[in-house]
Design a protein around this nucleic acid. Sequence first.
DNA 1: CTCACTGCAAACTCTTTGCATGGTT
DNA 2: AACCATGCAAAGAGTTTGCAGTGAG
Lengths: 147, 147
Amino acid sequence: MEAMGEPKSQERYEDELRSAGMRITRPRKTILKILAEGEGHPDAMTIFHRASEIDASVSLSTVYRTMKVLEDRGAIQRHVFEGGPSRFEPAGGRHHDHLIDTETGEVIEFRSDKIEALQEEIARSRGYEIVSHRLELYVRKIRGRKR
Amino acid sequence: MEAMGEPKSQERYEDELRSAGMRITRPRKTILKILAEGEGHPDAMTIFHRASEIDASVSLSTVYRTMKVLEDRGAIQRHVFEGGPSRFEPAGGRHHDHLIDTETGEVIEFRSDKIEALQEEIARSRGYEIVSHRLELYVRKIRGRKR
DNA sequence: CTCACTGCAAACTCTTTGCATGGTT
DNA sequence: AACCATGCAAAGAGTTTGCAGTGAG
């Protein structure tokens, strides 16, 4: 219930890359392991730090390059939330949008078929078709009165 | 019907700044004039170029600084669409979201109370209140079959 | 006459890229 | 052995900022 973009296993990622004719190198293994852990929606620097703990020789460039490759392969998705760096999440789950807790930076996924339908309607009524869309709710936890 | 963030007149902008104790300088006058023209959703570089034609001495820094001041005053809004630089629009009209034509970069404003309501519902059901939100539809013109 | 504002250049953040070396297949 | 991928450092894009000079009030 937490993750709609359910994290692929590391093996799954590796197969995906291998079958695309890419080499499974040590740095990539490390990075894929981190993605497979599925801890939130990390940015490149976070991935880099986590990777460094496993293998101190992994470079930030490689993190960026690997993310780009995975993105091009459609294995991950990149999100740029307000004012921040790109954050990544495993792709392949159902499409969803995001709530971003403005106090903690935590990201919560949600999905609304009603909203999706309304968007379609809006675009179509203006003579357009939707190529992609982005819906982000920047939120704050309600405290005090319960409910 | 094109602009929901109806462009304030230049005088309106100036008054707004003056009453906030700010000095109306030559560069600011020039920049405000451009904003008042309300031509689309320009980015800083575009504003800079347009300003340069009127007064070649205006600097890009001043454009950025002025935009920031106006943004802090709530006189304009900043939008960062996918992969692009910040783009600005006069604020004060009703809230609205954006359709971005992926082929031309043109921005079309729209508004959906239904979607707004659904967003509220989604946030609330998860224990959050919305601080701000962003809804962008990246679209392509439908051609061929009419309708 | 003051002090906010300016232009300029330098700094900054995030990301990409050129190059020579190194590791997979 | 071939050549893709790597690390490093440098380059980019967009934006912000330090500084000394300038001009609005």
